[in-house]
Nucleic acid binder design. Structure first.
Length: 547
RNA sequence: CGCGGGGUGGUGGAGUAGGACCACGCGGGUCUCAUAAGCCCGAGACGCCGGUGCAAAUCCGGCCCCCGCAACCA
């Protein structure tokens, strides 16, 4: 049976513009991986969408005095534009607002309920008598009962760092109305992870190929022991609880004012988006979700780690439907800007759309790819951005291509009679494919890119060593033939990283755009296309940038 | 002492006991097919303190710093 790849990229909240941290954290890595997978000939399904629920959205709405829906409407088009701009190869990019998603989330819940993984539990929550509703922790502030700091949020004191439980705030106020709030009992569903602990643990221990720190972090959570985790909260924005389908004795008190917790519904989006894709394309979601030859890759930032290595696998296992579990969670650390955390309020931010439009998509993709926070936090530096683009993209790659193509066109009249393969070059290209494939299978993007640039360097050395400009025509043809071999293969090797470059280069040398044909492995040395190379109008592929 | 991950030239990485390596950047030289590009040479580093070893970036102990779990946030 044919190997398939499923790719789930984290779902961005629609409560603000996306900055380059989002690009580095999951959008660019997942796109590199998806293009690589497609080049290898695997049928690939890549899904994501906007996460429209949760307190980040309602907070933003309350701050602006509008409805959550207005916030969603404001930011959704911008995110869609960004994805199109950077050519992120999603097969579907949907939203958690869809009817399909709400229905499937409810079905997930009902199956967990039926299978005995859901329990009801009462907890104490802050309640505003004035507004007649429960308030999430982030809406309540007061004095910390440990250190006495004023104006602290109900979940944690910033001053002393202590995590606060309900009731540990003195004189709690609603930060919407600034009126007092009280503690009141409230009824919620919990997903009882203690019942899933053994199965999750067995699953995790079978996956020692994860990044070391991802595996260790997950194991440390398991060692502490999993506890029931609330899946509903008192909020009027989100997926409703399907009361009609719940036996009366199991219903929640006041459930019409409760919604599923955003962590619970957001990850189900990976599945619901797949179903939506299947329906729209007349396909069967089981090909990707109930298929032992389908490997599931997920891309996210480290704050999402545990949701993808424990909570989401638990939700899947609890379905008891034999659904595919995550095979490789590609977790990235964080990207900083000149040593500081991104912060909208302090103006430490680079808007993904602005930088792409100003300096070029592949330019940004290239720099970000070379500094991805794969195993530890990394830093975006403007100076380095300029240096890397000018030094590597332009001087190394762009110039190599230009010196070969111009020579081929002007000195050899777009024709080669001597097509003798130089084994040294052939081996270097084959070796690069081999090593890059190994690396990309493990989502090691930085070192893959580095290896490809080593090949380009070899190309420049090859020209320097053989000096075609000093040779007789027959000899210089051989040198240029082998240099063109490098160039054609760069259009494949670099395709996952720099799709526009790959497309533009191929167009310029009279080759058709790469077609990701299912079942055909194109991630290997290609000799045939050199015959077809003709250069009419030469245009430099990269230009130096100046900040 | 809450738990987990991390700290190697200016920058980013490789290296789990025996010559500290690679890329970019920097300094110098050189070719001229090419986008003042290319190629060659050079300088420059193991967070701090202590321990074990013939020998420590690597093993052990203590400390400091950064990040996540857990703020506007991937």
């Amino acid at each position: 049976m044919e190997k398939k790849i499923f790719i789930g990229a984290a779902w961005p909240y629609v409560n603000g513009d996306l900055h380059i941290g989002h690009l580095a954290g999951y959008l660019i890595p997942c796109d590199i991986f998806s293009r690589f997978s497609r080049l290898c000939g695997y049928e690939t399904l890549m899904v994501s969408g906007t996460d429209c629920h949760g307190t980040p959205i309602t907070l933003e709405a309350d701050k602006k005095g509008v409805k959550p829906q207005d916030i969603v409407n404001e930011y959704t088009p911008k995110i869609h534009y960004l994805i199109k701009l950077y050519d992120i190869s999603f097969d579907i990019f949907t939203a958690t607002l869809t009817e399909n998603h709400h229905k499937i989330t409810q079905e997930f819940f009902l199956r967990l309920l039926k299978n005995g993984y859901i329990i009801k539990q009462k907890t104490l929550q802050y309640y505003s008598p004035l507004e007649n509703k429960f308030l999430p922790d982030r809406y309540v502030e007061g004095k910390c009962s440990f250190c006495g700091a004023e104006g602290q949020r109900a979940d944690q004191c910033e001053k002393c760092g202590r995590v606060l439980e309900p009731g540990q705030l003195i004189n709690p106020l609603s930060n919407l109305t600034k009126k007092p709030v009280i503690l009141k009992e409230t009824d919620h569903y919990f997903l009882d992870y203690s019942k899933l602990q053994d199965k999750i643990e067995r699953y995790v221990r079978e996956n020692k190929h994860w990044k070391y720190w991802v595996y260790e972090e997950t194991i440390s959570w398991l060692k502490e022991g999993l506890k029931p985790r609330p899946i509903t909260r008192d909020l009027d924005w989100g997926v409703k609880i399907p009361d009609q389908e719940i036996p009366e004795t199991l219903r929640l008190e006041g459930s019409e004012n409760k919604r599923f917790y955003v962590w619970f519904d957001a990850v189900i989006g990976y599945f619901s988006a797949s179903v939506e894709w299947a329906n729209k394309n007349n396909r069967d979601w089981r090909e990707f979700w109930q298929n032992e030859n389908c490997y599931h890759y997920y891309f996210m930032g480290k704050d999402n780690l545990i949701f993808h290595t424990i909570f989401w696998p638990g939700q899947i296992i609890g379905q008891e439907m034999n659904l595919n579990l995550p095979y490789f969670p590609c977790v990235n650390q964080f990207l900083f800007l000149e040593g500081q955390k991104f912060s909208k309020s302090r103006g430490i931010i680079i808007d993904s759309i602005e930088i792409g439009e100003k300096y070029g998509i592949d330019e940004v993709r290239f720099y970000i790819s070379s500094i991805l926070p794969e195993n530890k936090d990394s830093d975006f530096k403007w100076k380095e951005f300029e240096q890397k683009i000018n030094g590597e993209l332009v001087d190394n790659l762009g110039n190599f291509i230009q010196r070969v193509l111009i020579f081929y066109r002007d000195k050899l009249d777009n024709r080669l009679l001597n097509k003798e393969i130089d084994n040294e070059i052939k081996n270097k290209i084959e070796n690069t494919y081999f090593k890059v494939r190994k690396k990309l299978e493990r989502c090691e993007m930085i070192s893959s890119l580095k290896m490809i640039f080593e090949l380009i360097k070899e190309g420049n050395k090859y020209l320097e060593k053989n000096e075609p400009w000093k040779k007789e025509k027959k000899d210089s043809e051989k040198i240029i033939f082998n240099s063109l071999l490098v160039i054609v293969n760069l259009s494949y090797l670099l395709n996952p990283f720099l799709p526009h470059f790959s497309k533009n280069l191929r167009k310029m040398i009279n080759l058709e755009e790469i077609n990701y044909q299912i079942g055909k492995d194109q991630f290997k040395i290609n000799f045939e296309e050199i015959e077809k190379i003709k250069i009419a109008d030469y245009q430099p592929l990269f230009r130096k940038i100046k900040l």
